[in-house]
């Protein structure tokens, strides 16, 4: 049994990750590792970067085609997609369905997949919508760990 089956926490080895260059331009990381009947991400992608063999298959992303626009973040019913862009700092866009929404420029805590505080983060962008998308800036070493925020 994999860790995500028991604990609900995905490990990086279970994901197909982008290379450094792709990360520099910013791409969607789809943390969807279990076959469920669902495909809105495929329809939402403007560059057809996401594909699925059938509605139950796992989504496959072509990091070359992905432009990191984040449209898939909002539509994913599982809130399982994040856009990650890594340069000197890492920018992470994540779905956030709680109140209050943070403000741009606000300092918040970044949480990992277990809800543990791992570092400080600065809110760079708040995109309101059916599912708000928050973009935070964290040190680059946390690019693949920070997946939630806590407003102190």
């Amino acid at each position: 049994m994999k860790r995500w089956e028991i604990e609900g926490i995905v490990e990086l080895k279970d994901l197909e990750l982008p290379n450094e260059e792709q990360l520099r331009k910013g791409v969607a990381i789809i943390e969807c590792v279990q076959e469920i009947p669902c495909n809105p991400c495929v329809d939402a992608c403007p560059t057809n970067a996401i594909s699925m063999e059938n509605i139950n298959a796992l989504p496959k992303i072509d990091y070359e085609k992905c432009i990191g626009c984040g449209k898939c973040i909002e539509v994913c019913p599982g809130l399982a997609i994040f856009v990650v862009k890594v340069n000197e700092k890492a920018l992470i866009s994540l779905p956030y369905e709680f109140l209050p929404l943070p403000k741009e420029g606000q300092k918040v805590k970044a949480l990992d997949r277990e809800g543990k505080e791992i570092c400080d983060a600065i809110v760079k962008k708040v995109k309101k919508g059916k599912t708000p998308v928050i973009t935070i800036e964290v040190p680059p070493q946390y690019a693949m760990e920070a997946r939630n925020i806590r407003i102190a």
């Binding site: 604990e7 943390e31 399982a80 949480l111 277990e114």
Partner: peptide, 14 residues
């Protein structure tokens, strides 16, 4: 249940 539902609450610390 679905892993994605579990992941959502795990990253909130539950």
């Amino acid at each position: 249940g679905y892993f994605v539902h579990a992941a959502k609450i795990r990253r909130c610390g539950v």
